[in-house]
Simulated scan of single mutants.
Amino acid sequence: MKSQPDLLINRLQEGSEVAFNRIYDRYKDALYGIIYGIVKEEEVAQEILQDVFVKIWRNRTSYDADAGRFFTWALNISRNASIDYLRSKRHKNKLKNLSTDNFVDIIVSKDNLDEQTDTLFLKEWVQKLEPMCVRIIDIIFFKGFTFKDGAEELGMPSGTLKTRHRKCLNSLRKMMVG
C-alpha cells in the first residue's frame, strides 16, 4: 500500500488540482527558503517560487519516484530556477544599480549558511557532516555556484569538487534515510 505522500504525488501526476494545492501548501516554505537563500530578495524569491510551481505542474508527469524523492526533485527545480535568475540579464542589470551597502551585505551573507537555511530541516543534517562537506554543499547547493566557480572558491580542481560533492551528498542522504 502506498503512503499518503505517494498517493498525493500520484494524484498530482494525474492532474488533480486539489493534490497540487496540497503539495503547494506542504512544500512552499521549504522551497522559498532555498530560493531566498540564493537570490536574497523577497519579491524575486516569491516570483521564482510561483514559477517553480508552474514548472512542477507542467512537468508533473516527468517526476519519477524511482529516481528520487519528490521533495528533492522540486528542490532541484527551485535551485535551478534561482541560478537561472542570477545568470539573467535582468539580475545583472540590477547589480549595476546596487548601492555599496547592498553589495557589502551580499559579500557578508555569502559565508553564512545558517541564515540561508533557517527555514529548512536540512540545516541540522548538513551541519552534522564534516566541515569540508558543509562548505561544499553551502557553495554549490545553497549559494548556487557552478562547479567551476566553486572550485575556484575552494582552491581545488573542478573534477575533485564534483567527486567530493557527490560523496558529501551521499553521506547526507545516508544520514537522513537512516
Score class of each variant (00 low, 15 high):
Glu43Val: 08
Gly15Pro: 05
Trp57His: 07
Asp51Pro: 00
Gly33Met: 07
Phe20Ser: 06
Tyr24Trp: 14
Ile38Asp: 10
Ser16Met: 07
Ile38Gln: 10
Ser62Gly: 10
Tyr24Cys: 05
Lys28Leu: 05
Tyr24Phe: 12
Gln46His: 01
Gly37Trp: 01
Lys28Ala: 10
Tyr32Cys: 03
Lys55Pro: 00
Gln50Pro: 00
Glu47Tyr: 02
Glu41Cys: 04
Glu43Ser: 08
Leu12Met: 14
Lys28Glu: 14
Ile48Arg: 02
Asp51Thr: 04
Ile48Pro: 00
Glu43Gly: 05
Glu47His: 04
Ser16Trp: 13
Leu31Gln: 07
Ala30Asn: 11
Ala45Met: 04
Val18Trp: 15
Gly33Ala: 13
Ala65His: 14
Gln46Asn: 05
Leu31Trp: 01
Arg22Thr: 15
Arg60Cys: 04
Arg22Leu: 07
Glu14Leu: 06
Val54Glu: 06
Ile35Phe: 01
Thr61Tyr: 08
Tyr36Lys: 03
Ala45Arg: 02
Lys55Ile: 04
Trp57Pro: 03
Ile38Ala: 06
Arg58Glu: 13
Tyr32Val: 01
Gln50Thr: 09
Thr61Gly: 09
Arg11Ala: 14
Arg26Ser: 12
Glu41Gln: 11
Glu14Val: 04
Tyr27Gly: 12
Ile56Tyr: 06
Glu42Ser: 03
Lys40Leu: 11
Ser62Val: 11
Ile34Arg: 09
Tyr32Ala: 01
Tyr32Pro: 01
Val44Met: 06
Leu31Asn: 10
Gly33Pro: 02
Glu47Phe: 00
Glu43Asp: 13
Phe20Asp: 08
Val54Trp: 02
Val18Phe: 12
Gln50Ile: 07
Lys55Gln: 10
Glu47Leu: 00
Ala45Leu: 02
Ala30Gly: 12
Val54Pro: 00
Lys55Trp: 01
Val44Pro: 01
Asp51Ser: 05
Asp29Lys: 04
Glu17Met: 11
Ile34His: 07
Ala19Tyr: 14
Gly15Ile: 02
Arg22Ser: 12
Ile56Gly: 11
Gly33Asn: 10
Ile38Asn: 04
Asp51Ala: 05
Ile23Cys: 14
Leu49Pro: 00
Gly33Trp: 03
Arg60Met: 07
Arg58Gly: 05
Asp64Val: 10
Ile34Ala: 13
Phe20Met: 08
Tyr27Arg: 09
Tyr24Glu: 14
Leu31Met: 11
Val44Gly: 08
Tyr36Ser: 03
Arg22Pro: 12
Ile35Thr: 03
Ile48His: 01
Ile35Leu: 03
Leu31Arg: 01
Ala30Thr: 13
Gln13Ser: 08
Val54Phe: 04
Asp51Phe: 01
